[in-house]
Amino acid sequence: MSGYFSSSVGRKFFMALTGLFLVFFLLVHLIANLTLFFGADSFNATAEFMGTNPVIQVMQPLLALGFIAHIITGIILELKNNSSRPIKYTKNNVGANSTWMSRNMIITGLMIFAFLALHIINYFIPIKTTHVENHYELVVGLFKNPIYAGIYVLAFIFLGLHLMHGFQSSLTTTGIRQEKYQKCIKTLGTIYSLVVALGFISIAVWFHFA
């Protein structure tokens, strides 16, 4: 198995697995955030649950590892891929054969990473280091800031684009893709990406203007 993970295909498999783990996490995170729409009490209860539930506490370091592994492997793969064509084409009509999303996973990925850093500084560190009584107030306060809300919306547009390719790509890399499932995988990937991106964006926009 050690040979497997040092091979190109194995590294990609690792990339896909960590990606799928994050795909699952995003859905959980979105569901938690959607409770904002039900008012302060339900969101505070959710935050309390997320902060104390033993399963979530075990998953948190795993999630951090998942993020770090996905980002580092992604950068390693990108560097290798870049060096595989040292002299670029003078004219390359890439738009004729592939989507922008599929070619720019590193750009959308790094944008999401930048947002993640901001999110950790603005929300995760404050709730871990200080005793936050009212999570609802903290979150809604952040959304009232036009710069933060703007960055938030932009970040989730990048996330949506990242997922649009990442979802189906991970199912090819893990070997789940087959002719008979492909249409379903594509549709599911598009729906998932739109739900996640628009879900988070709608929260930011709603609470900014509310």
């Binding site: 190109s8 793969l77 891929n81 054969n97 989507t99 599929s102 890399t173 893709r177």
Partner: peptide, 23 residues
């Protein structure tokens, strides 16, 4: 390099080899 499933190969392949083979 490593495959990132962009599908450019499948489009440009003169024999229409499918990405399903990569899976």
């Amino acid at each position: 390099g490593n495959c990132t499933n962009t599908g450019a190969c499948e489009v440009e392949c003169p024999k229409g080899i499918s990405l399903n083979n990569i899976a």
